[in-house]
Design a protein around this nucleic acid. Structure first.
Lengths: 279, 279
DNA sequence: CAAAGTCCTGAATCATATG
DNA sequence: ACATATGATTCAGGACTTT
């Protein structure tokens, strides 16, 4: 697998297939051609608004490492919404007429994405519930344990009709027999989780390949071109490659770009595993 | 059980406990006292935007009854949003400082409720997924089957701390051991479903008592006062009564007011069943 | 080597009391 | 509005250690 790594916008033209582009997605997307992508996957900052103090575990001498990265910091909902609108505007231009878009999130911010998408004319097809088999409990017992994340699946507009939905795949993935909108998948851990030399997780919110596999197999065909403008640790690109789809992934942070590069070099094991349900 | 049925706003004063008030909730709520309710449950019109012509079931003459009642008709998202804002403003005044509010819906409109709630300062505690064990399949095979509805659970504002959360109850209701935000409940059918003399369902979206039971038992104490401004067929009132909570329910349609009245007269069976998990 | 036990951690808007 | 100290409520899964 030859992953193209693009560092300058001048290199983008006719060179964006199976590429990782290093830069701010709001800028980069301006340099990609309109009506190009069959599917877009967005895993945005969730704007968790976590408190400054961390939770201390009381049976081990460690703390819960929340998401404190600068990319999850916004001054206000207004600022967050502005970001959402800009992303969606630029993404919409890049989508083919029959393309679909996925956005994953939690109640912290996903309702904002959903309402704004509707206001911009996107047509929601479904929400899909990712049911985590091993969520982190709410130990203090003051709320329900959040065992789910939600994915919005939508077309560019109400009139888009010939989008891809592979119901036979969906039937396999759903918890029942009628391709339900509920996927039960463990959180990403173990050998799949990318860790640094100290054994620390590299990205705080790495998504499981199994999740992306289901997204890709239900909503794209082979050789389709997929866009992920906020690549993070690159799971969308990795999954697309393993499943025979083409991709453009965009990531702003140097650190993650380097790790994505490394991840693609280590693909052999993944390639062996993905078709026999290791992922 | 003596259900008070209030037909005129003059009768409301000091008379709103265990009462069904007939009228438009936006008007009626003006006549209720501030800081009164411990919990509010809202099951709003979903704004499904279904086509006017009825869906025809494939190779069958039976029609799928979409929700086409006039109360689900809004001209636009703008009009719907205006309604949402008005409801939430009036509800917020009626909530005690430590009260919580539940809103149930689907992607058609719930994201609008969620974003508007956040913009108005409500503080979301969780979303809870109602996982339907027997959803209606999407028999056209063009989307995932919607096997879920989502409930938003929130306080009036971020600083509300002493809200009620009965985690022992939540532990029983959740899928796993840690009071997850996922409830698996069948849709309302069989003898619980209110039907008219012709055997037709009276209300298109009657909620199961088991759902309201879980809402009430996890988020209220005995004798707490509960508000449902859009009562529909009255499930919130019935469930509140059966569980020893007080309630005010408001309904605009003559037809449903009459059926709620009848439902309360028939409560004996429900009363027998609710504590042994019939509901 | 296998089995059993220990430890760590995961997108978390997670408490209360005192100064 | 902060920071700090106290306290004793969490489960599944994988990595690691001990038996």
């Amino acid at each position: 697998m030859e992953l193209k790594i693009i560092k300058h916008v001048q290199e983008i033209k006719d060179n964006y297939e199976n590429a990782l582009i290093h830069g701010d997605c709001l800028t980069i997307m301006e340099h990609l051609p309109a009506n190009t992508y069959s599917m877009v996957f967005i895993d945005p900052p969730y704007f968790l608004q976590l408190p400054k103090k961390q939770l201390k575990r009381w049976k081990s001498n460690t703390q819960v490492s929340g998401v404190e990265e600068h990319w999850d910091q916004f001054a206000s909902f207004e600022e967050y919404d502005k970001f959402v609108v800009e992303v969606l505007n630029k993404v919409k231009r890049l989508m083919k007429d029959n393309a679909t878009i996925w956005v994953i999130g939690t109640y912290h911010s996903l309702y904002r994405w959903g309402k704004i998408m509707q206001d911009m004319g996107f047509w929601i097809l479904n929400d899909v519930i990712w049911l985590k088999s091993n969520p982190m409990p709410n130990w203090l017992g003051v709320r329900f344990t959040n065992a789910t994340e939600t994915l919005i699946w939508a077309t560019k507009n109400k009139t888009a009709k010939d989008y891809i939905f592979n119901k036979e795949q969906a039937k396999v993935f759903g918890i029942g027999k009628v391709y339900e909108n509920v996927w039960k998948i463990p959180i990403c851990s173990g050998s799949e989780r990318v860790k640094d030399e100290q054994g620390q997780k590299v990205h705080p919110t790495q998504k499981p390949i199994e999740l992306l596999k289901r997204v890709i197999l239900t909503s794209t065909k082979e050789n389709d071109l997929i866009l992920d403008p906020m690549a993070g640790i690159g799971t969308t690109g990795v999954s697309a490659y393993l499943l025979g789809r083409k991709f453009t992934i965009i990531e702003r942070e140097d650190k993650y770009v380097k790790w994505i590069e490394k991840r693609f070099k280590d693909l052999k094991d993944l390639n062996d595993g993905i078709y026999n349900n290791k992922y």
